[in-house]
């Protein structure tokens, strides 16, 4: 029971009654002020905060790093990328850090460089692992360079993927993105949507109309 709900203690009979009452109040308030009922109230408040946070998350207050709803504008990453090298760029937005890597065997991969744990920068480390790996120095998070899957450390989700293409002149372009763990075809279908109907048909996406409804329902 909190002190404020107590009836004021009756002043003593002595002339300095007010002072005695004051001292009693002071003494009571020196005791622990947080009772178990107060804890229950605090727990209820925390619970309400979590509920509000959950609604906020579902409504989209968090930024989904390296994601775009529709087809992002293709962007030139670099003029040339040698095996074992990496280059940092921004894609799809100017705020979305990304990383393009050419694996030693020549495969070209691109990922969002925002760690899925606490958003540190992910680095390409050729010297680590069998054929290099994506490494987050903040908490030793490690991602597989070929798939973006988490192979060690605290990150909860794979890195969002970025689809790269190589032009005949060797320049590398970023063209599309996929969310964490999203299959490539699903991601491309979602972004192509109804803006590129012939490409969606080529990919064998579910019917154009359905794809558009899907997109509205999922986002």
């Amino acid at each position: 029971m909190s002190v404020t709900e107590q009836p004021a203690p009756a002043p003593g009979p002595e002339p300095a009654g007010d002072e005695a009452a004051e001292r009693l109040r002071d003494r009571i308030s020196a005791d622990s002020l947080t009772t178990r009922r107060d804890y229950l109230r605090i727990v209820a408040t925390v619970s309400g905060g979590l509920a509000v946070g959950g609604v906020g998350v579902a409504a989209g207050i968090l930024h989904r790093h390296g994601d775009s709803e529709s087809m992002p504008e293709a962007r030139k990453v670099t003029d040339a990328l040698a095996p074992g090298e990496s280059v940092a760029f921004r894609f799809p937005g100017d705020e979305d850090r990304a990383l393009a890597v050419r694996l030693p065997d020549g495969t070209l991969v691109g990922y969002s460089a925002v760690c899925t744990h606490l958003a540190c920068a992910v680095l390409w480390r050729e010297d680590r692992g069998a054929d290099g790996e994506l490494y987050c120095p903040c908490h030793e998070g490690v991602f597989d360079a070929r798939t973006g899957e988490v192979t060690a450390g605290p990150p909860p989700r794979p890195l969002p993927r970025i689809f790269l293409t190589e032009q005949p002149d060797g320049s590398v372009w970023a063209i599309a993105t996929a969310r964490s763990g999203e299959p490539a075809r699903e991601a491309l279908c979602r972004q192509l949507g109804d803006s590129h109907p012939e490409m969606t048909r080529q990919l064998g996406c579910p019917g154009a109309g359905r794809a558009a409804a899907n997109q509205r329902g999922r986002t």
Partner: peptide, 27 residues
């Protein structure tokens, strides 16, 4: 909440809303 954040980040907004509903019920 961690489940809801993960689902939302992976693009499964519907699942994230289920998580929000669970959080409200718990509250």
């Amino acid at each position: 909440l961690t489940v809801a954040v993960n689902e939302w980040m992976e693009g499964n907004t519907g699942t994230a809303w289920w998580g929000a509903g669970f959080l409200i019920l718990s509250f």
